[in-house]
Write a protein that binds this DNA or RNA. Structure first.
Lengths: 337, 337
DNA sequence: CTGCAAATTGACAGCGCTGTCAACTGTGTC
DNA sequence: GACACAGTTGACAGCGCTGTCAATTTGCAG
């Protein structure tokens, strides 16, 4: 037979309601009572039944992590974030569910509604690019579901975690400049993603600061995928004046660029320097190992979830935490010859 | 105000219990009534509250996917399986949760117990290598929690999904033999994983069938990680008579082997052929693209979950479904020179 | 048309917990 | 010593659904 809250109450010599208070870490319980109840719980190995807690208390102890599975089929980046979110939820005995949410089409708000109505998450963790679809955020606020974001575009009124991606991108390009590169290309990510905008802005900032006029031919559109990196590289290498270095907006695209370089018999980094962004495991497994910006994805997932939990547990308003990045110089970049 | 089952019942002119029966797809409801109730549900956009269903019905509608996070930090393989499991659960309106379960130490059975007691999953999907820890399976059976496995070692009494990995490995090695290789090395995975055993067995089978005596120096231990592939390759390439081809038990290790080849200035596939197993996205992003065995991981996750759901929904006993593999010949293998 | 078994439907209690609100306890004040 | 007041505890109902079992309807043989 399962141990119920009532059983714990009897053992501790208090009313069920008092045990409930202890369980939920509520105020107004004397230290002595709290200690007695906690001991009884331990002794009996009491496990609250979450369905009963949910039904009576009208909360689900559930955090849903939403991601866009249009452009992100099982990506490493998301897997790492998920790992961090899960760790944070575990620590506070919250459950976590992952929900793909196709952002294609215009009924994604309905799909969000369905997720909320079906699962009643107490809160939501938003991952890029879902962090910035205005109608979706609006609906979340209307339905009064707290949420935290990983790398949202707007810092105003958002809680979660962010990184100064523009500065990171600028740092990367400044590094390339310091190696002596002047014709530096940039492969952009999907146009309306915040990550694409920041990384492009950082690139432009560094180039401008070095007094270099922007050559539009050196900035090509990508889509964060390996294949788009391949396409972008083909375009860049076909230029009359090809770049001596390529800064791709993420590692997958950078690996596409390197792939094309190999295909053409160009040596990296002797003939062309290539660098990426994110530092997914792939970056170290490529030959030569990829110079990139390290983004602590797992930690970022954890921190975003912790901010959300802060709110859910009524501990405070939560904030937008800034995470550090680092430039990982490896073997795919060198001075031009 | 939320629409409750009672509201639907009133609208359809039946008792709440009858609506419940329709909701749960039970027998003994006349077609006419069923139709009327279903219509009422639709019209009112009724969403059953899962906490109430769980509490009253003593089931959770929850499937937990267990994985070992010792050796698998956010691996692509698991992410793909997860994706498939999620799809299957969604289709039957079950929730899914992912649970890392460190297999190190000997209290993993307790940790399993905690998962069951805390979350009460109706069923569990086991992923390698958790599929084969006898004490864990025993506990699962004792506690009467149905489970399905992805690639279990033992096919007896297990439901889920499997692939003939030994045949796949043999096929790969036969392909290398057909290219003219004779000194073929194998980098093993973690010793007690089923995948390691089968892939090694397939390697041996093919070598023996070709009349080649096994050279123990050509079979080296790995651990399914990139780093272990690097270590294994250093060992192999240092041999007096190094291999002309290396078959690694998975793609990550194969990429480590290629990395060392590059480091030493050896050309793949001219100087050394390398191949892997799994066909994770990395395989196509390496240069040269990796010859490997394609394993339909996502589909396998889905099929395993479907077998479990078959059981959970009282539809049958479930079975062990065999999935096909395919040899993906790419550019990392060629005849020796 | 009657009688009987099978199929269909409903009444009711209760799953294990928490919200509400009332009751009680102890402390400090004048 | 009486009173006010904050701090602590408990009684009770009820969250929305399903299990049990009894009541009713239907189908069909005689």
């Amino acid at each position: 037979m399962r141990v119920r809250l009532e059983d714990v109450a009897r053992r501790a010599g208090v009313s069920p309601k008092t045990v409930s208070r202890v369980l939920n870490d509520e105020a107004n319980v004397s230290d002595a009572t709290r200690k007695r109840v906690t001991a009884a719980m331990e002794e009996m190995d009491y496990r609250p039944l979450s369905s009963a807690r949910s039904l009576a208390g009208n909360r689900s102890f559930l955090v849903a992590m939403l991601y866009d599975n249009n452009d992100n089929p099982a990506s490493t980046y998301l897997a790492e974030i998920q790992d961090g979110v899960l760790e944070a939820c575990d620590a506070h005995r919250y459950n976590m569910m992952v929900r793909p949410l196709r952002m294609r089409g215009d009924d994604f708000v309905n799909r969000l509604d369905a997720v909320i109505s079906d699962h009643h998450p107490d809160g939501i963790v938003l991952t890029p690019p879902i962090t910035d679809y205005a109608p979706l955020l609006k609906r979340l606020r209307e339905r009064n579901v707290p949420f935290a974001s990983v790398s949202p575009v707007s810092r105003e009124g958002n809680i979660g975690v962010a990184m100064d991606e523009q500065l990171a991108a600028r740092t990367m390009v400044e590094y390339l400049l310091s190696l002596g590169h002047r014709r530096i290309a940039h492969v952009m990510g999907i146009a309306d993603h915040g990550a694409s905008r920041w990384r492009l802005a950082g690139y432009r900032e560094a180039m401008a600061a070095a007094g270099l006029a922007e050559d539009p031919a050196l900035v090509v559109q990508g889509a964060f995928t390996f294949a788009s990196g391949v396409a972008a590289a083909r375009q860049l290498f076909a230029l009359k004046e090809p770049p001596t270095a390529v800064f791709a907006a993420n590692d997958d695209m950078a690996s596409g660029v390197m792939w094309v370089a190999n295909e053409r018999g160009m040596k990296v980094p002797q003939d062309i320097s290539v660098c990426g962004f994110d530092d997914i495991p792939l970056a170290s497994q490529l030959w030569p190992a990829l110079t990139t910006i390290r983004q602590p994805s797992r930690e970022m997932g954890k921190v975003a979830a912790l901010q959300l939990l802060e709110v859910l547990r009524g501990r405070g308003p939560g904030r937008l935490v800034e995470m550090p990045f680092s430039l990982e110089v490896r073997d795919s970049t060198a001075s031009p010859r």
